[in-house]
Nucleic acid binder design. Sequence first.
DNA 1: GGTAGACCTGGACGC
DNA 2: GCGTCCAGGTCTACC
Length: 326
Amino acid sequence: MPRLTLPAPADYLLKRDFCSYGYFLLFPNHWDPRRQLFSRVLSLSGGPVHIEVTQPNGRGTPIAVQLGRALTKAERNEAVHQLTRMLRLDDTSENIRAFHSLDPRWKRLGRARLMRSPTLFEDVIKTVTSCNVSWPNTVNMNRRLCETLGDVVEGPEGTAFSFPSAAKIARTRSQTLRARCRVGYRDARIVQLARLFSIAPKCGGIDQSWLEDPATPDEAVFEFLIDLPGIGPYAAANIMQLMGRYRRLPLDTESVRHGRTLLGYKGTSAHVMKQVHRHYAPFGDHAFRSYWFELWEFYESKHGRSWTWERDSTGKMFTAALLSKT
DNA sequence: GGTAGACCTGGACGC
DNA sequence: GCGTCCAGGTCTACC
């Protein structure tokens, strides 16, 4: 079986750093808690490939990737690029030290990295499918998007699907998305986003290199994102944290619950949100990481360490009704 | 600039 | 098992 090996930073721990953000539970990602193995289908220029990712020798040792088929040199580079993005292997130790010096609570556990998708497009669509719905519904939308529009691959444990490409969704009728993927009123917005991602910047498409360039100011990125269909202030801030821009907080009803129950703030939702913003402002460029790891610790206090969670049974763990029972 | 209401799905609840 | 209510962020119309 073809393999790929990725060097890991000295502090990298796959189970902790991969199971660090809710998207690790969304299709086509699959974390196997028993084998401590992450698998999914990656979309490469030569077609889809099923991968299995482990860190056999633990913290700081290389990441082993089992490939479902042989890759060309160009495809290997693409796979490395996508996995590096996804696992945040490129988050520098200076950056992580800066976070830990601002918020030392997470130094002992080594928490700093937040997993994300192999592409910005997948992160954007996952964010849209997480707005204005309960978590189990988000899980279903992503599963149906993959099963309906993704490329099919035979993996070691049966049929697996890729996340659909922007080009594929751009060619799909919005009614199909609504009827078969159950995305509701998000249908046309998802198709519009896919079109913007699948055409060249000079033809009116999204200039991803400008958007992901660290030199582009936060404010410019935010203004650009909230002009996109289906993207409001919450979604834009969430996409920004997925891009590694942690200063702006994506606050939602879950943040209000956190502000009330754990931080002790009182008053209207709008008032609590303002207090939460103020609470994390001292963490500056790392505000979201401080906020998120507090939330994550709360979830783990209820359900055990995230790397023990099963994708197919965690949906109901994150309903508002259950989370409000502190 | 601020606010009300529609959008759509699925879970919770009452019967 | 069925019907009703409600949660959730974005968008538009309106003031």
